[in-house]
Computed example of a mutant assay.
Amino acid sequence: MTHASTVDGIVVALVVGVRLVVPLFIGRFPLPAILASLVVDGLDKSILQAFTGLDLTNYQSYDKALDIYYLSITYLAVLRNWRDRYAVNVVAALWYYRLVGVLLFELTGLRWLLLVFPNTFEYVVIALEVVRTRWDQRRLSHRAVLGLTAFVWIVIKLPQEWWIHVAQLDFTDEFLTRVLGVDPDEGWAAGFANRPWVLAALVGLVVALALGLRWLWPRLPAADWAFTLDADEVARRSGAPVRPAGVRAAVTRWAVVEKVVLVGLVTTILVLSYPRIDARWWAAWVVVAGVVLVHAAVQVWRVRTSRTGPTSLPGLVALNTAISLVAMSVLAALVADGRTGDVALVDALLMAFVVGLMTALYDRWAPESWTARRGEPAPLTAGADSSR
């Protein structure tokens, strides 16, 4: 192995590792972890271009998979932390609307679908998490939540989705070429040296924003608590019950159905976008649905028999991944059509890990009314939470 390939491998491992690990903090520290994931998502390709000699032709497929990964964790964190059921319902609708749009895009290749199904979910969650740092989110009226959603959808996301997915323009390249007047390969230093007034204007904009925030700050409503980024601290200060320790199982009918839909959509999108897997989309969904039902059956058995098992999240994810891998192998053999028999072990492990992680997080973070704890009756036939 050459020195260049070793360096390339280290850089890729660091970039992908950061993109996999940072989202795991979204449950406890949602706002900083989401923003960090967003920043890394925006910089990762530039870092790989600058520090490796790799061919990044297919990187968009991997990037999309990592985006779905961290956004899925963001949705599960909303279930974990938010107590305003109306706001949960709104962002859940936005999340599933986007997933359906991405699935349709993967099936048809029509880029305008991403404009029709924009990723409004992410920015609405960020905005409401900003509110939760100092105020009780439940103070927001239904009209305010819908107004915020409409603003993000129309003013922010539609132009952004058009720029990225329809016009297919790169912000960095366009800014360097059109604003700074240099070739993108020359870099930022050369660009600001060519047009230093742009740097001065950007500094002035930052100063103006800072002065605007300073003017606005004392005019905001009185805070409900001191600034915090800890979701558990928000729960304590708002008087909401803090989640009890221990392993829980989301096994109500609603929970099982949502896990099938959620994990099925996410995994099917990954299968369709992943360049090394060739499978029928409906077969992938059938396999994943079967795997989720296997997980639910195992959870019901554990709860009813008070069986012990992993209590740490890494242990639970590892066990769920192993169960997923076995179940996927069996179910895939039943629906294979000759195109699914050559899936590499590392790719099968990746898909099994996604299913294992999402089922583990859902079981831990779903609302209490959807779950049972060991030693309690497993409400597999119980109805869904009426507030959802």
Results as ranks from 00 to 15, higher is better:
267 T>S: 14
315 G>S: 09
277 I>W: 02
325 L>E: 03
306 S>G: 06
291 V>F: 07
321 T>G: 08
326 V>P: 00
307 R>E: 14
296 A>S: 11
326 V>I: 14
303 V>M: 09
309 G>N: 12
304 R>H: 09
268 T>G: 03
330 V>R: 02
289 A>K: 01
306 S>Q: 11
331 L>C: 05
318 A>E: 01
298 V>A: 13
287 V>P: 01
325 L>S: 07
275 P>T: 01
270 L>V: 15
307 R>L: 15
290 G>M: 05
268 T>N: 02
288 V>P: 01
304 R>M: 10
286 V>T: 15
280 R>W: 15
314 P>V: 13
324 S>C: 05
304 R>Y: 04
287 V>Y: 00
273 S>G: 11
295 H>R: 06
308 T>H: 09
277 I>Y: 02
302 R>A: 14
331 L>K: 06
315 G>N: 08
323 I>C: 02
302 R>I: 05
306 S>P: 00
302 R>C: 10
272 L>W: 08
314 P>M: 11
315 G>Y: 09
285 W>F: 15
307 R>P: 01
277 I>P: 00
284 A>V: 06
331 L>H: 05
269 I>R: 03
315 G>E: 10
292 V>Q: 06
316 L>E: 13
287 V>G: 00
317 V>H: 05
316 L>Y: 11
311 T>G: 08
316 L>C: 10
324 S>M: 03
317 V>E: 07
270 L>E: 12
287 V>F: 00
278 D>C: 05
330 V>N: 05
326 V>G: 04
326 V>M: 06
293 L>M: 10
311 T>R: 06
272 L>R: 12
269 I>S: 04
296 A>Q: 02
295 H>S: 07
303 V>A: 15
315 G>R: 08
300 V>F: 06
271 V>F: 10
305 T>G: 01
313 L>P: 02
300 V>E: 03
329 S>Q: 11
294 V>R: 02
268 T>R: 00
329 S>E: 13
